[in-house]
């Protein structure tokens, strides 16, 4: 070892009369057994403490933390999936409600249409009846008027012929008035 050059300094006592070190205290072999003995005890104690208590405990803490993180991530993933699901359900409900509303509106419209059609048909029938009545009344009135005109025209013609000094020929007058009023 590299310690050979110093060995002669170490010979004898390691500390001088004043309590100072002679040479390197590291090379005082008188102290070696003491240091090695206590070192071995120290290492054994530290080793036992570490292997029995400290290291398993720290390993457990780290594993537990890793587990917690993994669990939390999984839970977050779960919640996210649930949120997506809820959104889908909401959208579906919205679409359903919308189509339902449209259906109801269409139904109502159809119902109203039916009523309307009925009312229109009824009104049309009434109108047609009234129009037919009116037409009949107008025809009557027209027929009445024609007749009156013929009577008045014949009377007037007969009076005119008489006034002019002639003799009223009823048949001739009738024929003439008829021919005139025909057109």
């Amino acid at each position: 070892m590299a310690t050979e050059p110093f060995t002669e300094e170490v010979a004898g006592s390691c500390v001088d009369a004043g309590g100072s070190a002679i040479g390197m205290p590291q090379l005082c072999f008188d102290w070696f057994p003491n240091q090695i003995f206590w070192l071995v005890i120290t290492l054994v104690v530290i080793f036992l403490v570490l292997s029995r208590v400290a290291l398993p405990r720290i390993a457990a803490i780290l594993a537990e933390r890793q587990g917690t993180i993994t669990n939390d991530l999984a839970a977050a993933e779960d919640l996210k999936a649930k949120a997506v699901e809820a959104e889908e359900a909401y959208n579906k409900a919205l679409a359903d409600a919308r189509s339902e509303a449209q259906r109801i509106a269409a139904e109502a419209r159809a119902e109203i249409q039916v009523g309307l059609d009925e009312a229109i048909a009824k009104a049309d029938a009434e109108i047609a009846a009234k129009a037919a009545e009116s037409e009949k009344a107008i025809a009557d009135i027209r027929a009445g008027a024609l007749e009156s005109i013929q009577v008045v025209a014949k009377d007037t013609a007969a009076e005119l012929v008489t006034a002019l000094g002639g003799k009223a020929d009823a048949d001739a007058i009738n024929g003439a008035v008829d021919a005139q009023t025909k057109g």
């Binding site: 500390v15 309590g19 070190a21 040479g23 390197m24 205290p25 005082c28 003491n34 240091q35």
Partner: peptide, 9 residues
């Protein structure tokens, strides 16, 4: 100077 005295057992 006693720099090595700190190492005395």
């Amino acid at each position: 100077f006693h720099p090595m005295d700190q190492f005395i057992v």
